[in-house]
Simulated assay, not measured.
Amino acid sequence: MQADIEIYVLSCPTEKIISWLENTFTLVRKSSPSPLCSKVIIASNDNEIEVTILEQAAGKRFTSIWFDSDKTPWDDDIACARQAFEYLNCEVRCNFQGWEEESNQDPDQWWRINSHEEGPFIWN
């Protein structure tokens, strides 16, 4: 189980991301602390999970979706990315493996899902 889940979506409107969350979970609360940042609280299996949606998180075209909880329904970032891609139909990227301190993984090694392919790649 991962401490949190974070994925990046390419050129995907925040409203569409929130729609995915509303269709997948129970939306408890929604706020917009800044023009580029939205926060939602979702309920999943009797757990409330804070989700931060940050536009322009990686360059101007990528939006970060960060689930700040170890109680998400996914085993890892890739499982979340797959579900997001199915609903959002836009390219999704995430860490290739869960981030671990002292791990030997390449920090530029990512997982990408789009309409052409799914698999590891170097994002730099």
Rank of each mutant, 00 (worst) to 15 (best):
R93V: 07
N95P: 03
E91H: 03
W74H: 10
I53V: 15
Q83M: 03
G59C: 05
D75F: 01
A84F: 07
R93I: 14
E91C: 14
R93N: 05
I78L: 13
N89Y: 12
D76M: 10
N95L: 07
R82V: 07
D75R: 05
K71Y: 12
W74T: 03
D75Y: 02
C90W: 03
S69E: 11
S64F: 09
N95E: 04
E91G: 06
N89C: 12
D75L: 14
T63W: 10
A81Y: 08
D70H: 14
F62M: 13
A58V: 05
C94T: 14
P73M: 09
R82D: 04
T72C: 15
F67W: 14
A58W: 14
C90D: 02
L88E: 06
D70R: 11
L54I: 09
L54P: 00
I65L: 14
F62K: 02
E91V: 07
A79R: 08
D76Y: 08
K71R: 14
A57W: 08
F96H: 13
R82H: 15
D77N: 15
F85E: 10
D76Q: 04
A58C: 10
S69Q: 15
L88P: 04
N95D: 04
Y87S: 12
Q56W: 10
V92H: 08
K60F: 01
F62P: 00
T63N: 05
E86P: 00
I65G: 06
E86R: 05
Q83R: 02
G59S: 02
D76V: 04
N95S: 12
D75E: 03
L88I: 15
W66A: 01
Q83S: 11
F67E: 00
P73L: 10
Y87T: 01
T72I: 08
E91I: 04
I65V: 10
K71L: 12
A58I: 02
R61N: 08
K60I: 07
Q83Y: 05
D76I: 01
N89V: 10
T72P: 15
I65F: 04
D75C: 04
C80S: 07
R93T: 04
S64Y: 15
K71P: 08
A81K: 09
A58K: 13
E55H: 11
I65P: 07
C90R: 09
I65S: 07
I53T: 06
E86Q: 06
L88D: 11
S69A: 03
A57F: 10
A58M: 06
F62L: 13
Y87C: 01
S64E: 14
C80I: 04
I53H: 03
Q56A: 11
F85G: 01
L54S: 13
D77M: 02
L88S: 02
I78F: 14
E86S: 10
D77R: 00
A79D: 13
D70C: 10
Q83A: 13
Q83F: 11
S69I: 09
E91W: 05
R61F: 09
T63P: 03
L54A: 07
V92L: 07
A81T: 11
C90Y: 02
T72G: 13
K71I: 08
W66V: 00
D70W: 12
D77E: 11
D75A: 07
